[in-house]
C-alpha cells in the first residue's frame, strides 16, 4: 500500500536526499509489524519486571501493592537467596570453564578430520536436538535409584556405591553440573569447529615447521586468532547456564535435596509459581538480570582482542 506513495524513480546515491528519505520511510513500514510484535511481547514484559519487583504480591490472583524497597531489604538477609547465590556461583565456576575449554579442544579435534570425525559430529549434535523436558526425563531415569548408572554399577560389581544421585546431598549438585556440561559441550564444540575451519592451513603449516605440536597449535595459534569468537560463545554459555538452570533444576531436583541445588534462576521460578510471592520473585529476577549484565561486561573485557 505504501509502495504507491513512493516515486517509482530510484533514488541515486548522493542525488536527491529528500527523495531517498521518503523512499526509506515507505520501506520501514515493512519492518513495523515485526518490531511492534517483538517489543510488545518480549521487551514489554522485561520492563514490567522492574515494576513488579517492587510490589507486594502474594499470588497471581491476589491483589498487588507497592512496598518500596521492602523486597530488597528482605532479599539481603534471606538465607535462601544467599544459598542460591552460592550454588549459582559453584554451578557456573565449574561448568563454564569446563565447557568452554573442552568445547574449544573438541572443535580443534573435530577439525583435524581424523577417521570417524563425520559420525562424531552427528553424535555431538544430539544434545542440541533434545528438548529440555526430554533431557530432564532422560537424566531422571539415568540417575534414578534403579536407573542406568546404578544398574551399570551393579553389573560390574560396584552395586554398593549405587545411590539416588539426584536425591543425595553430596551428589545432587555434581549431577546437575555434569548434566549441564553434557548438554553444552557438543554443540559448542561443533561451533568452534566451524569457526576454526576458517583458519588458513598455511598458518598451521608454518607453526609445524617451527616444531609446534597440537597443544601449541591449539592454544598459541588457533586460540589467539579466534579469541573474539571464544568470548562471544562464552557470553552465550554464561547466560544460558545462569538463566537456563531453572528448567533443568525444576525437572531434575526441584532445588533439593534441602537447598542443595537451589540456584537463583530456580528461586525466581519457585517464588513465581510454586510458593507464589510474585513481587519477591521478580526482585530476585532483577538480581539475576544484573548478574547477567555484569558477567557479560566482565567476559567482554577478558576476551577483548589484544593486538
Amino acid at each position: 500500500m505504501t509502495a504507491i506513495l513512493d516515486s517509482p524513480v530510484v533514488a541515486r546515491p548522493g542525488g536527491g536526499k529528500k527523495r531517498a528519505r521518503t523512499r526509506d520511510r515507505g520501506l520501514i513500514v515493512f519492518a513495523l509489524p515485526s518490531v511492534v510484535w517483538y517489543v510488545l511481547f518480549t521487551i514489554g514484559p522485561l520492563v514490567a519486571m522492574f515494576v513488579v519487583a517492587f510490589m507486594d504480591w502474594a499470588g497471581l490472583a491476589a491483589p498487588a501493592s507497592f512496598n518500596g524497597a521492602d523486597n530488597v531489604t528482605r532479599l539481603l538477609d534471606d538465607e535462601r537467596v544467599l544459598t542460591a547465590l552460592k550454588n549459582t556461583a559453584v554451578h557456573l565456576a565449574v561448568s563454564l570453564p569446563v565447557i568452554m575449554v573442552g568445547a574449544f579442544m573438541l572443535g580443534y579435534f573435530l577439525n583435524l578430520k581424523l577417521p570417524g570425525h563425520r559420525i562424531l559430529r552427528v553424535i555431538m549434535f544430539v544434545p542440541a536436538l533434545i528438548s529440555l523436558s526430554a533431557m530432564g526425563m532422560l537424566f531422571v531415569a539415568v540417575l534414578g535409584p534403579t536407573g542406568l548408572v546404578n544398574s551399570a554399577l551393579d553389573q560390574v560389581g560396584l552395586g554398593a556405591h549405587a545411590t539416588a544421585w539426584l536425591a543425595d546431598p553430596t551428589w545432587a549438585m555434581p549431577s546437575l553440573i555434569l548434566v549441564t556440561i553434557w548438554s553444552g559441550l557438543g554443540l559448542t564444540g561443533i561451533l568452534f569447529a566451524a569457526r576454526l575451519s576458517a583458519i588458513d592451513d598455511e598458518i598451521y603449516a608454518a607453526a609445524e615447521l617451527d616444531g609446534a605440536n597440537h597443544w601449541q597449535k591449539m592454544w598459541r595459534v588457533a586460540y589467539p586468532i579466534t579469541r573474539d569468537y571464544f568470548g562471544v560463545l562464552t557470553m552465550l554459555q554464561y547466560l544460558w547456564t545462569l538463566f537456563g538452570s531453572a528448567g533443568m533444576v525444576l525437572l531434575l531436583t526441584r532445588g533439593g535435596p534441602g537447598e542443595a541445588t537451589s540456584t537463583l534462576a530456580w528461586l525466581v521460578y519457585r517464588f513465581g509459581f510454586r510458593s507464589p510471592e510474585v513481587g519477591y520473585s521478580q526482585t530476585i529476577g532483577l538480581v539475576l538480570f544484573v548478574l547477567g549484565i555484569v558477567g557479560l561486561v566482565i567476559i567482554r573485557r577478558v576476551f577483548r582482542a589484544r593486538y
Binding site: 517483538y38 517489543v39 511481547f41 513465581g272
Partner: peptide
C-alpha cells in the same frame, strides 16, 4: 533493538509474560 534481543534470555521475563 533486535541485537539487544540476543542478550535477553527468554527466561528473564517469564513471570511478566504470564501477567501479560
Amino acid at each position: 533493538i533486535y541485537a539487544l534481543g540476543f542478550l535477553i534470555p527468554g527466561f528473564a521475563a517469564l513471570v511478566p509474560t504470564l501477567l501479560l
